[in-house]
Amino acid sequence: MNTSGLMLFWVSAAVALGSAVGTISMRNPLRAAVSLLIHILSLCGIYLSLKAHLLATIQVLVYAGAVVVLFIFVIMLIGPTANEQRAPRAVGTRILGAVGALLSTSVLAFTLVRHDAQLLPIPQCPPGAGAECGQFGGVTAVGAELYLGSMVPFELVSILLTVAIVGAIAVAKGKTTATSPKNEGPTTPEGAA
């Protein structure tokens, strides 16, 4: 990997880590969402350093363009209550959770790094290699893999999107008023659906 590639990786990695920490530590969800946006964009850099050009594009389009926007939309909809109040409860379990998660992750990371030696180095395209080698990560090659090789799961994802849409509608369409939690039977009819 050349120097610019290395630079790209380290800078993107640093930004990705920083913004990820930012996302999970911000009190204001809006700021967290912006931080998430930065995180997602920084991952594009990682993808580019791995020669996954198409994926980097999709990442911007879908994640930055759709998912984060959806988040921001919902945060706006909910308004200022979206801010987390200081919750006095369960500090101990939270710290435990954080320590546990970080510990297990570092063990995971350490193990994975240690096994670096066993893995192959990044294959470099030998000079004068065929088009296939040069095509790695390109639109044509990935597209062929995606739409031909993985046609079946691709079609299945359409069902998944349908179920997500219909499910989201079923959950959130129209106005709802709460019934008392004590009287579990939904005695009042559903709000205007």
């Binding site: 990997m1 996302t23 791995l50 954080a98 992750t105 990371a109 790094v113 670096d116 180095p121």
Partner: peptide, 20 residues
């Protein structure tokens, strides 16, 4: 520069997410 760095990055990010 090998895969180790990427895996480490991935798992640390995963851990940050899990912590959050």
């Amino acid at each position: 520069m090998g895969i180790g760095e990427y895996l480490a990055l991935g798992s640390i990010l995963f851990g940050i997410g899990a912590t959050g």
